[in-house]
Design a protein around this nucleic acid. Structure first.
Lengths: 122, 122
DNA sequence: CACCTCCTCAACCAATTGGTTGAATACGAC
DNA sequence: GTCGTATTCAACCAATTGGTTGAGGAGGTG
């Protein structure tokens, strides 16, 4: 699971980590600030931050004994790009398939109409 | 990790599963067709498909003894929505922060200019 | 210096994951 | 009914994950 995209998806597959990302949207925060809302140990949150950092979603600087955590929003674009590409392509395919089916339906209706006309001729 | 979004992200955190999704974009496929490119067992691929199915990314019908796999492209929109929301919000915040910093810089430049003018007056 | 705060490292543990093999099911063909 | 093909189920295994506790390390403050 070592490639970049896998690490990105895996990082956001945990609700606590998604929560942390949501929190970081409104501004940088220290580890203890981030840990406060949860009833897990500070070390557990520290581990989550390490995962987010290794995925490139977050960066940490140093400020006295604090380690402010910063969201790297641009990286999120990498994921949307992958997802969007697939979504678009698949939906385009279905759209074309629908068009083909619509044509087939139209032909079927035309045939039925022809049959009906033939019946009326009786 | 039981919530919907977590299952979605986790499902795409595996390169083989992302590969399968990519393959399914061009059309439905059976389990053995999907397994062919990989040197893992058919059962392993079957397990991957189960993960994708439980995440809602894929659906399976029945056609004789085959089980054609179908990509549910619409579900991908759920992920893009989450990511995009966060990305947008964070970037908007940075944009505003940049604006504030720009104003501070302008003020600083103005002060420097004033100092320079004062010096010239000497 | 000693002390307190913020945070990480290390070792451990239970649960989950991605893989295996072997047996079982479902269905069409002979 | 028997055979072959397509797929899943079950049991197992090693590696990873998300959590814990305990012991530091880094850096201000008395």
């Amino acid at each position: 699971m070592s490639d970049r995209l896998s690490r990105l998806f895996a990082a956001l597959a945990d609700p606590t980590r998604r929560d942390i990302v949501t929190r970081l949207v409104v501004g940088d925060a220290t580890v203890s600030e981030l840990a406060k809302p949860y009833d897990v140990s500070l070390q557990a949150v520290s581990k989550h931050l390490k995962v987010l950092e290794e995925a490139g979603l977050v960066s940490r600087s140093r400020e006295a004994q604090r380690r402010p955590v910063h969201l790297e929003a641009a990286v999120l674009a990498e994921m949307t790009s992958w997802i969007h590409r697939h979504q678009q392509a698949a939906e385009e395919r279905y759209r074309r398939l629908d068009a083909v089916l619509a044509v087939l339906d139209a032909d079927l209706d035309a045939d039925l109409d022809a049959d009906l006309d033939a019946d009326l001729d009786d």
